[in-house]
Write a protein that binds this DNA or RNA. Sequence first.
DNA 1: CGGTCTTGTTTGGGATACCAATCCGGGATA
DNA 2: TATCCCGGATTGGTATCCCAAACAAGACCG
Lengths: 222, 222
Amino acid sequence: MSQMLQIHDQLREMILSLDLGPGERLTERWLESRFEGSRTPIRAALVRLEGEELVRRDGRNWIVAPIDLGELESLAEFRIPLETTAVRLACARASEADIAGVEEMLDACQSGAPREEWHRVGTDFHVEIARLSGNPFIVKAIAGAMTRLSRARWLEVWTEPSREQAWREHRRILGFIKANDPEAAAREAADHITDTRDRLLRSLNEDRRGLRARGFAVIGLR
Amino acid sequence: MSQMLQIHDQLREMILSLDLGPGERLTERWLESRFEGSRTPIRAALVRLEGEELVRRDGRNWIVAPIDLGELESLAEFRIPLETTAVRLACARASEADIAGVEEMLDACQSGAPREEWHRVGTDFHVEIARLSGNPFIVKAIAGAMTRLSRARWLEVWTEPSREQAWREHRRILGFIKANDPEAAAREAADHITDTRDRLLRSLNEDRRGLRARGFAVIGLR
DNA sequence: CGGTCTTGTTTGGGATACCAATCCGGGATA
DNA sequence: TATCCCGGATTGGTATCCCAAACAAGACCG
């Protein structure tokens, strides 16, 4: 694989895992020494990440994109029509094998699994459901939305019951798709998006002090 | 403005206006002489355009993204839930001044206007409606979808009646938003997307020979 | 005559050199 | 002591250089 793609993937991972703080400045020279490559592939990776809105220009400088918690409402508003459409289409188009694949993914995440695993599956579930719709534009839009949500979700204080609740909702959505009940699946999906948004906002609000203590600029959180 | 952005914008325009043929190969050295800049900013522009899917890698080479007419169905399927949501939100949120602005845009396009003007306004209308929703994710998604549609719309054989039809539909959508009737506006928007998709597909099918004569690879058109 | 191998050219990937703008700190001055 | 100004260090923007891989044409061999 080209060096640029390696740098892109590593940097992306560092950003999404909050290894690099939101708003943090990135100098090309620091990245140069960090990744032991020259500025040419690094610049390409930065331009690419800029397209994914994980990195941004601040004047002439590069910074890690800040987390704007005010986006959470718009994001839910955006996801609801898309994901309800996705599950409706999935009912019509997904094969049993496709559905079984997603079921397997959920099963693989047992209660003893590490936090990273829960985080990843909680994101991928929605992308996989979108994939069942067979519509590549929906898939890409949902994947992008989940990426933007990803870092905020790391900040969430995950309690056992709320996590269980989310997983129950995932299973119910999948169950309705399996039972070929598009309207119930759509209703369930919309409720799930609303619920997780509310859980996230409540958790972040209760933990504002903790967030700031960890150095996060809490932008746009009402 | 930085040289890279200039090159990006010019190249983008050349691609969208079909000045560069879909599938055509782009060598960095040719672009270098064409834009009288060195490869560094050119490569940045290419990476950026790759993110917008207007340019693509073919092995180690760069090519102008081919037009995949098979996307037209998926694209409509994607736009319908988003644009119906957009008009519903617009009813709730748009100010009269906002609506008047869009109305003005439609009025400015008189029957004597050049083809480029009709093309641009026909695209921008949908983006502006999305903007009235106040949701930046919807705006970006619609803008991206209209960009992907843009080149296929140049291929369309525009008859006077079909153009009139489209404009009538635009005005009806806007009228329902103005009258604050979200459900009628949503219905109208969905119908409009379906109609324009059908018009486009019909036109392209009737003109397959003409398309091929003009050197376009007609991918995915059923 | 046909196929294969070679070699020269072209291409993109990466490294580096250079420049102009900006940022930052220290010292002179009021 | 506070402020202003100047100069050096650092940064991103651009140009160029080198290299390995891909490609194509032509020569050579069967």
